[in-house]
């Protein structure tokens, strides 16, 4: 029989068993463990490892009109990293991340702090309404904002007309950046808010009581207690938004048809890979771009998590 143990959970449970049963117990652990993990393992190998390996393989070849397909090693990658389309797309998503991610997190954090401080029927209602865009497919969100930005359907013309001003055109070259920042913030800030709010609700209120006794004001409690304690949750949403933003595709792809000329087919690296693979049937180069992009995201995020791991992150 197993005794109650105060060991950490990672201590092997077989320890207390009698020696002669031990081998059998260990074997059962191996078999059952793999039985439970196996089905996911198969999917993991077939739909993550295999496609990545295949894409890597394809990315090492080039198809030419004359001479057919030939092995070129890293030529496709060299081409990608000197390709103005790929570079400008990458530069765009980096700039976009630098502006939109801090904005989303600040908005989400402010809303979560407000909702954590004030409780009323209205704040409960607000929490749901602010979260609502998360339930909307990003495509539909982009379609909806496309209508709001549009000169023929949108309210901007009327609104600015009231003051005799010309409405801003968020689908034009100058403002499309901010138009997209707005769509993304609308779509995701509520989701991040819910994650942060859940983390805030997990804090022991006795801490606030103690801080108040020591003379801390509301701002000090927010800045010195609440925010440091939800740092893991902040890190989590930072990572999620970084992964998502570097892969930016849905929103610009949808707004492309409305913003003819503003959003090119190489607007983001992912759109460029899509164009190479599906419009130009250039699968080898498309693979190389996909692989390079996925690789950069993976390494970047991994390095980021490694550097911040002291703070006991979510991993």
């Amino acid at each position: 029989m197993t005794l109650l143990t105060t060991d950490t959970k990672s201590a092997p449970r077989a320890r207390d068993k009698t020696p002669d049963r031990r081998g059998k117990v260990r074997l059962r652990e191996h078999v059952m463990g793999w039985l439970f993990v196996g089905p996911f393992g198969i999917v993991f190998l077939a739909l993550l490892i295999a496609p990545l390996a295949y894409a890597l393989y394809l990315s090492l070849f080039q198809k030419k009109l004359i001479g057919g397909t030939s092995f070129v090693l890293f030529d496709n990658y060299v081409k990608a990293f000197t390709d103005p389309s790929f570079l400008s797309g990458s530069w765009f998503v980096i700039r976009f991340s630098l502006v939109s991610i801090p904005l989303q997190i600040i908005v989400a954090l402010a809303m979560a702090l407000i909702l954590d401080t004030v409780t009323s029927l209205f704040t409960r209602f607000s929490r749901l309404m602010i979260f609502l865009p998360y339930a909307i497919p990003t495509v539909i969100g982009a379609v909806m904002w496309g209508f709001l930005y549009s000169k023929s359907f949108g309210p901007l013309t009327d609104l600015f007309g009231l003051f005799g001003a010309t409405p801003p055109d968020f689908l034009s070259g100058n403002l499309i950046f901010y138009g997209l920042v707005n769509v993304v913030t609308w779509q995701w800030a509520g989701y991040y808010m819910i994650i942060l709010y859940a983390a805030l609700q997990g804090i022991d209120p006795a801490l606030y009581e103690a801080a108040r006794m020591d003379g801390a004001g509301r701002w000090q409690i927010a800045l010195r207690i609440k925010i440091p304690l939800i740092a893991p949750a902040l890190l989590l949403i930072l990572v999620f938004s970084l992964i998502g933003t570097l892969q930016f595709f849905n929103e610009p792809q949808i707004l492309r048809s409305l913003a003819a000329g503003t959003i090119g087919p190489d607007f983001t690296p992912n759109m460029y890979a899509y164009q190479q693979a599906f419009a130009l049937a250039n699968f080898n180069y498309g693979s190389a771009i996909s692989f390079a992009l996925g690789g950069i995201v993976f390494v970047g995020v991994y390095a980021f998590l490694f550097l911040t791991r002291k703070r006991r992150t979510f991993l």
Binding site: F44, L47, L48, A50, P51, L52, Y54, A55, L58, V239, I243, G244, L246, Q247, F249, N270, A273, Y274, A277, F283, G286, S287, S290, F291, L293, G294, V297, F298, V301, Y302, L305, L315
Partner: peptide
């Protein structure tokens, strides 16, 4: 855990070709 950091969209074109 490593796979958490592989964006789903990065897999689309490779999976399509497979």
């Amino acid at each position: 855990l490593g796979a958490l950091m592989v964006p789903a969209t990065a897999l689309v074109i490779p999976t399509f070709m497979m």
